[in-house]
Design a protein around this nucleic acid. Structure first.
Lengths: 119, 119
DNA sequence: ACACATATATTCATTTTGTCAATAGGTAAA
DNA sequence: TTTACCTATTGACAAAATGAATATATGTGT
């Protein structure tokens, strides 16, 4: 298992976006531009996810083997890079969920404690 | 409302640590070294919070007016900088909690959706 | 004197993010 | 047909956050 850097609270932007993108790709292959739009359905304001960030993440994810891509020329519009999730990506997602749940509990605890003191 | 930068998911390390430190200082004034130890009670692994990071954060927080400090010479050990939370810090914390709750719901939602698809 | 724990502070390199411009094909209307 | 706008991807650069390591004093116990 690679050492987890920079993930003290698990919910760093990049990590979370990776999980969200993998989730979307788990449902069906898609290209970057549409994925950014679909983030809206996850409660993630797409205005906060620039295309630059999203495409960079997708490229990184492919390098890490979490997703794979192929060009799609057919259809209307410019050529699109269609991404699919790999088995490795599925594993990563499972792992992420487990960690995220732990982190969520810590966060929830902290929030409740703070609310109690503020009250 | 000031535009929230760099907090897409609210739970960035820095932001969360700021909240945790403010929470501790809300209960009683303290100095950096002891604060790091007390993070343990919040479920935050102290091995993940180096003193370097903590002191840097505390100084930033003071610059931003969330806390104030004074040197304490008396008592045993080397001089300590005792931090107290300010009114501005209390406001910040209230705000953070509200945001964090929203973000928690988004995260929870995402996690549940992923779990459903993985199942 | 010596080792060790407390306490604060600073530096530098690296990683992660954010912003924005460049490129390019397709579509629709004037 | 040329102008304008939408889709789609990429790359470059700046800014911010983080990690690791080091430097500084002081006090305590032996």
């Amino acid at each position: 298992m690679k050492k987890m850097k920079c993930a003290r609270f698990g919910f760093r932007t990049g990590n979370t976006l990776v999980a969200a993108l993998l989730y979307l790709l788990l449902k069906k292959p898609a290209h970057g531009y549409s994925l950014v739009d679909e983030l809206r359905d996850l409660g993630i304001d797409p205005a906060f996810v620039s295309y630059g960030v999203a495409y960079r993440l997708l490229r990184d994810m492919e390098v890490r083997g979490l997703i794979s891509s192929k060009w799609e020329i057919e259809g209307s519009g410019p050529p699109r890079r269609i991404y699919s999730i790999t088995n490795s990506g599925r594993e990563y997602l499972k792992n992420w969920v487990n960690n995220a749940e732990k982190n969520l509990r810590v966060m929830n605890n902290l929030i409740n404690k703070i609310k109690e003191v503020l009250k």
